[in-house]
Amino acid sequence: MQHMQSIQHWEPEEPEYDGQLELPGIALDKSDDLLVSLGELEEELERARLTLEETELLRRFRRTSAENRRMVLQILGG
């Protein structure tokens, strides 16, 4: 034990916090590409969101009998 050198206490540098969380696998630079992509994603989600009427029709379709669902699908199919 006499030959052991003392180990200096090392603390890693803390990254500067600018309020932005970093996600693993996404390298953020100073471009707006991420904001553009998030905007496009939000638009697509809004476009795909069901209206209240569509939600009610889907709820009723799911509650009906298998025979009624089959007839509705037949009518819709042609």
Rank of each mutant, 00 (worst) to 15 (best):
T64Y: 01
E13Y: 04
G39P: 02
T55C: 02
Y17Q: 11
Y17G: 04
M4D: 12
Y17P: 00
R60C: 02
L57Y: 04
S65K: 03
P12G: 02
G77V: 02
E22K: 06
E40H: 09
L50D: 01
T64W: 02
E14S: 12
L21R: 09
I75M: 15
D32E: 14
A27M: 06
P12K: 09
E40G: 08
M4C: 10
E44Y: 04
D18F: 03
S37M: 10
L35M: 10
A27V: 08
I75Y: 11
I7D: 07
V72G: 00
R60I: 00
A66H: 08
N68H: 09
G78P: 01
Y17D: 15
A27Y: 06
D29Y: 05
L58R: 11
Q5H: 11
L50C: 00
G39M: 07
E16S: 09
I75A: 14
L23M: 10
I7F: 06
L50I: 01
L73C: 13
V36F: 06
R59T: 01
R49Q: 14
Q8K: 15
E46T: 08
V36N: 08
E22A: 04
E11S: 11
E53T: 09
Q74D: 08
Q5L: 14
M1H: 13
T51S: 15
E42A: 15
L76Q: 07
F61L: 12
I7E: 09
L76K: 07
L21C: 05
E43V: 05
H9R: 12
P24F: 05
Q8N: 13
L58Y: 05
A66G: 00
E44C: 01
L57I: 04
D32K: 10
V36R: 14
M1A: 15
W10V: 15
E42V: 06
L23V: 14
T51V: 06
T55N: 02
R60Y: 00
L28A: 08
M71I: 13
E11H: 07
S65M: 04
E46L: 13
L45E: 08
L50A: 03
W10N: 08
E53Y: 03
W10G: 00
E46A: 14
L41F: 07
V36P: 01
L52T: 06
L23R: 07
S31Q: 03
L34F: 11
L34K: 03
E22G: 03
W10L: 14
M4Q: 15
V72C: 08
G39H: 05
G78Q: 12
L73N: 10
Q2V: 10
A27T: 09
L52R: 11
R59S: 02
G77H: 10
P24S: 07
R47I: 00
S31K: 03
T55Q: 10
R70G: 00
L57K: 15
L34C: 05
L35E: 14
L73T: 05
